[in-house]
């Protein structure tokens, strides 16, 4: 399946992807409205260490342990994409506990949030679309 990959070589650590992600998952269409005064919780993370940077988000595992560990049935697959039903999630933390990528995190509303590859807005995930240096790619590997 198509996933978001990072070409570490080109990641600048600018963190724009995190903001584009946040915007894409907010209800706003404008970056200012979406982010102003907010605690930015994006579905992908940039890890920085000196000059090395890379982004990491949900790998949409073929066999996702988060779904197995989910105590509420909130996590499930839509096609090949692992998505979360925020109505069902009770934020028990089980998925945080088992995800080896650290891809899930608490949302502003107190339940879990995760990358859903921007499937609701269709097309290319916004993190990839907004990457200034072609470091993030959305492709089949």
């Amino acid at each position: 399946m198509k996933r978001v990959y990072i070409n570490e070589e080109w990641c600048l650590g600018c963190h724009l992807c995190e903001y584009n992600c946040f915007l894409s998952n907010s209800k706003e269409s404008d970056m200012v409205l979406a982010c102003m005064g907010k605690n930015i919780k994006s579905n992908l993370h940039i890890e920085d260490s000196g000059d090395i940077h890379f982004a990491f988000n949900c790998r949409h595992c073929k066999d996702p342990i988060c779904i197995k560990a989910c105590i509420s049935g909130a996590l499930h697959k839509e096609g090949e994409v692992v998505v979360i039903d925020k109505e069902k999630c009770v934020f028990c933390g089980s998925c945080i506990l088992v995800c080896p990528y650290g891809a899930l995190m608490e949302s502003e509303s107190g339940v879990m949030q995760k990358c859903e590859l921007c499937i609701s807005s269709g097309g290319v995930p916004k993190c990839v679309e907004g990457c200034p240096n072609g470091a993030l790619v959305f492709e089949e590997r």
Binding site: S49, V98, C99, G102
Partner: peptide, 24 residues
């Protein structure tokens, strides 16, 4: 501190030798 804690779980489950990792 629970954030991304699954990364630690995977260290236990995969029995990763800690000396192969960054100390941080």
């Amino acid at each position: 501190a629970i954030e991304r804690g699954g990364i630690y779980t995977s260290l236990i489950r995969d029995r990763v030798k800690l000396s192969t990792l960054d100390k941080n």
